[in-house]
Nucleic acid binder design. Sequence first.
DNA 1: ATTTAAATTTGTAATGATTACAATTTAATA
DNA 2: TATTAAATTGTAATCATTACAAATTTAAAT
Lengths: 142, 142
Amino acid sequence: MTLKEYKEQDIADYLKKYGIKPSYQRIKIFEYLRKTKSHPNVDVIFKEIVKVIPTLSKTTVYNTLSSFIEKGIVAVITIEENETRYDADTSMHGHFKCKSCGKIYDFDINFSRDDIDDLGGFEVDEKHLYFKGNCKNCLKNK
Amino acid sequence: MTLKEYKEQDIADYLKKYGIKPSYQRIKIFEYLRKTKSHPNVDVIFKEIVKVIPTLSKTTVYNTLSSFIEKGIVAVITIEENETRYDADTSMHGHFKCKSCGKIYDFDINFSRDDIDDLGGFEVDEKHLYFKGNCKNCLKNK
DNA sequence: ATTTAAATTTGTAATGATTACAATTTAATA
DNA sequence: TATTAAATTGTAATCATTACAAATTTAAAT
């Protein structure tokens, strides 16, 4: 058994654990989301996976992402209008989008403060935080 | 001079201050954004203002909002994909979107903590925070 | 006041991401 | 192997946004 197959088996098990039948397409899409850190959009995901699965349809990418989101193993990033991106890291973290190069960075946050948590009788399921500005690299190149 | 005209004059002055020529359309759109607290989308804004300006075009609403955003007197709210909303309150505050009724609430936040502010050489221009869940009203009605 | 130029508004068409849906293919079960 | 269900695919429809040119309004100049 090769190392590659071994990793795919891990992903298959992970998908099963969350009630998703691990088809080849689903494994490949999730694998890509896990290893990439660029928070890709549907088009980027499609263009990448279609190299491996030439018959892949963009509808499958949409369907697959929908089920991932529904099961809670992928998070949607909506920073810019008309630019939906996806993130396989569902742990609590913030996003920084560089207005110059467009890159999205992750950063750690801590939402433990009571004055943010206490919304007086509201039930909070998701917390999203994102900043916009200019990244280190772009500032350097000016 | 009526009270209504007086308020419109205030808005006209405000727009001028930010380098926007205060046309009737622009005044009405900004006035509506200022008084409403529901963070409306383009369609809602259009449907409301067209009652007063029957010749209004949706393109004008888009153009006007773009210039408001460019000048920094209106903020874009992108919580849901394909649901861009607008807010004339550009002061720092968070948004809570109820998954049940869809309503967006404002809440106060304080971003003074160093561990959130310090992104190590990154220049932060905008900070956005939003939560999702179920609001007080919807929880009560269950 | 009239003319000219610039800015704004308007309407229609184009774009592009997402969704709907039916047909095809694949996988699971008997 | 035959049957059924699930997943994938491709095409068409939808819907928000943008592009763009024509019409209108406003401002400036004469």
